[in-house]
């Protein structure tokens, strides 16, 4: 089951896309494509296990920044 914070939007803030993209309602940002697989629980992903944003917000902690902070480079 997909993350409850996930929605698909075509526009938000200063972004606008032709195709709706994964948007995280917890941090109010479009998410990176790799993270979108986590949001959707694709493959072996489970958002409740693998997403620090969900874990923080589901526990009421909040305060986890989005992908601009979390990225550690590419998937070469």
């Amino acid at each position: 089951m997909a993350c409850p914070f996930l929605s698909y939007r075509s526009a938000a803030a200063d972004h606008e896309f032709d195709e709706p993209r994964a948007f995280c309602g917890a941090v109010e940002e479009f998410v990176q494509p790799m993270r979108a697989d986590v949001c959707n629980d694709r493959y072996d992903f489970d958002h409740a296990t693998h997403c620090e944003i969900y874990r923080e917000h589901a526990s009421g902690g909040g305060g986890v920044d989005g992908d601009a902070e979390a990225s550690e480079g590419g998937d070469p």
């Binding site: 972004h15 896309f17 993209r21 940002e29 479009f30 998410v31 990176q32 494509p33 790799m34 992908d67 601009a68 990225s71 480079g73 590419g74 998937d75 070469p76």
Partner: peptide
């Protein structure tokens, strides 16, 4: 040239 990658997208 690594053109696209598998992590970030046009949101970045």
């Amino acid at each position: 040239a690594a053109l696209t990658g598998g992590v970030h997208g046009k949101e970045t």
